[in-house]
């Protein structure tokens, strides 16, 4: 490692002092609760905390055998895949177009990035205003064509609504990364292909798209993490997991079981399962970073 030859300051005490604030916060608000979650996941406790009992992996067995949990796992997968695919496909299309135009690039970028600043919960509300069956203008248009639109009663339509809101919010983020990715592709490669007679579509699929693979893969992981965790606000504000349990994602269920239904052991077991999912996703993401270093 190059850093072992770094010039440093000889000081025994100061570095600990500099690290202290971050470590203190990390210990109190990250490690302690995380270890509590793991500890509670092997306990069975009544909601009032009067009696506690060690139950081993029982909580996990019950959670994983619970049809409601499997349902919310399925909801999460559908929601995440749909959100990631839509947000990335639209962003890629817009980025490729923005790469082509010569005039107005900056203006287009400015006008495309602002949803990044909108809170997910508010993104959900904006879409709810538009598609609310009682006063939304777009819902009104849907209905006037005879389509029976009511996301508050129909689970599939509720899913469409939250996916739209979640994807809409994420387009700007993906757009910025695709633009950066496109700029790093050497123009000479594309020109060479053009001289060899490859048309625009062919150039895109055989040169540009494969060279964008690192960016695409990175965004896939980021979008999945986003859809898993950051969209809690959208679901809480728009559907509340309903109708029925049609939009109850894993994170929403942890919250609901822990805070609303007070099933502590199950909620803790779900937290631990989520932790394992995040660790998996982060590991994938960092493997990719390593690879990228090698291939430049």
């Amino acid at each position: 490692m190059a850093s072992s030859t770094r010039v440093t300051f000889p000081n025994k005490f100061l570095p600990y002092l500099l690290l202290a604030p971050q470590l203190a916060i990390t210990a109190i608000f990250f490690y302690w609760p995380a270890s509590q979650a793991i500890y509670q996941s092997v306990l069975r406790e009544d909601p009032f905390g009067l009696s506690t009992q060690f139950v081993g992996l029982d909580n996990f067995r019950r959670v994983l055998g619970d049809p409601n949990y499997l349902n919310s796992l399925q909801v999460t997968v559908i929601f995440s895949v749909a959100t990631a695919l839509i947000a990335m496909a639209l962003a890629l299309l817009l980025a490729v177009m923005a790469d082509k135009v010569i005039r107005g690039k900056g203006i287009y970028r400015t006008l495309l990035i602002w949803p990044y600043a909108v809170a997910p919960a508010i993104a959900g509300m904006l879409w709810l205003f538009l598609f609310n069956p009682s006063m939304g203008t777009l819902a009104y248009l849907f209905r006037s064509t005879g389509y029976n639109w009511d996301p508050l009663l129909n689970g599939d339509q509720a899913m469409v609504l939250i996916v739209s809101a979640a994807a809409w919010k994420q387009i700007s983020y993906n757009f910025l990364f695709f633009v950066a990715g496109l700029q790093s592709i050497p123009k000479s490669l594309i020109e060479a292909a053009a001289i060899d007679g490859a048309g625009e579509t062919k150039r895109f699929w055989t040169i540009v798209f494969p060279l964008l693979a690192p960016t695409t893969f990175f965004l896939l992981v980021v979008n999945t993490v986003y859809a898993f965790f950051d969209t809690f606000g959208i679901i809480h504000a728009v559907t509340g997991g309903g109708p029925g349990k049609a939009t109850e994602t894993l994170v929403y269920k942890v919250y609901n079981d822990g805070f609303v239904n007070l099933i502590l052991g199950d909620s803790a077991a779900q937290s631990v399962i989520l932790m394992i999912i995040v660790i998996g996703l982060t590991a994938i993401q960092f493997r990719y970073v390593e690879r990228k270093v090698h291939y430049g």
Partner: peptide, 23 residues
């Protein structure tokens, strides 16, 4: 210490809601 800080990437609020609330 570096790793202790690094690993917190894998512990978003959502996975430790209840115990953090209790603290």
């Amino acid at each position: 210490f570096f790793w202790l800080i690094f690993i917190t990437l894998m512990l978003p609020v959502e996975v430790r809601i209840l115990p953090t609330y209790k603290i």
